[in-house]
Amino acid sequence: MIRDYADHAANERTFLAWLRTGIAVIAFGFVIEKFDLFALTLLAGTGPGEEARAELERYSGPFGFGAGHAFIAVGILVILGATVRFVRTGRLLDDTAVHAPGILPDLAFGVILAALLVALSAYLVFA
């Protein structure tokens, strides 16, 4: 039997939740990046009215490319950070000393993701 199995299982569940979050952020980055291709396909294929054409051209700019890559990079960093945190927490669980929890990685991830979402929202609203 593994000593403190419940704690190790909770650590693994937390790790898997962070992995799902990282994969979701990467997938969102792909969606943002490929929206330009979707908008350009709509422009070429159906020949929408001038107002719809102007709206699609406005959304198919270089910002989507950069924002998509930024979300993909943040998703990869989340997965790497989750892996480091999982290994570190596993070692700390096996240690008999008492350790203080650290919130800096979680806070940094939240701030970076919020900044990306604000930038993307501002672009979509004011562009």
Rank of each mutant, 00 (worst) to 15 (best):
V125M: 06
L107Y: 08
R53L: 08
D4N: 12
T83L: 15
E33H: 15
R20G: 04
G29T: 01
L40R: 13
L107N: 08
L77K: 06
K34A: 01
F28A: 07
F35G: 04
L37F: 13
L116M: 13
F38P: 01
T14N: 11
T14G: 06
D106F: 08
L93R: 02
A108L: 09
T89K: 14
A67T: 05
F63E: 13
F63N: 07
V84M: 07
R13P: 00
I2K: 03
R20H: 14
R88F: 00
R88W: 04
Y5F: 14
R91Q: 05
A73M: 10
A127N: 14
I2C: 02
N11C: 09
I103Y: 09
L116W: 14
W18K: 07
I103F: 12
A9Q: 13
A9C: 00
L92S: 07
F35N: 01
K34I: 08
A73S: 11
E12I: 04
A115K: 00
T46G: 08
V74G: 10
V87R: 00
K34W: 14
D7R: 00
G22E: 01
G64H: 13
T21P: 01
D36T: 07
E33D: 15
R58M: 02
D36E: 02
A73G: 05
L117T: 06
V125W: 14
A122H: 15
L37P: 03
A119K: 07
F63R: 15
F38Y: 13
A108R: 09
V74C: 13
G45F: 07
D4C: 03
H99P: 01
V74I: 13
L56E: 04
A115L: 03
D106E: 05
R53W: 04
P101I: 05
G64M: 09
P48V: 06
I32W: 12
G22I: 05
L56P: 07
I2V: 11
L93F: 14
R91S: 06
W18Q: 05
A27Y: 09
E55Y: 13
F86H: 08
I26A: 11
T14C: 03
L80G: 03
P101Q: 10
R20S: 11
T14Q: 05
A39G: 08
A108G: 04
G81V: 00
F15W: 06
G47P: 06
G102H: 04
D7W: 01
P105T: 03
A100F: 14
R91W: 09
D106T: 03
F15D: 02
A82T: 05
L107W: 04
I23D: 12
T89L: 11
G110T: 02
N11E: 02
I2S: 03
G68E: 12
E50R: 15
L117K: 12
E55R: 15
F65P: 02
G45Q: 14
D7C: 00
R85F: 01
M1P: 07
F109M: 00
L40P: 01
Y59K: 12
A122P: 09
A54G: 02
P101H: 08
G66Y: 15
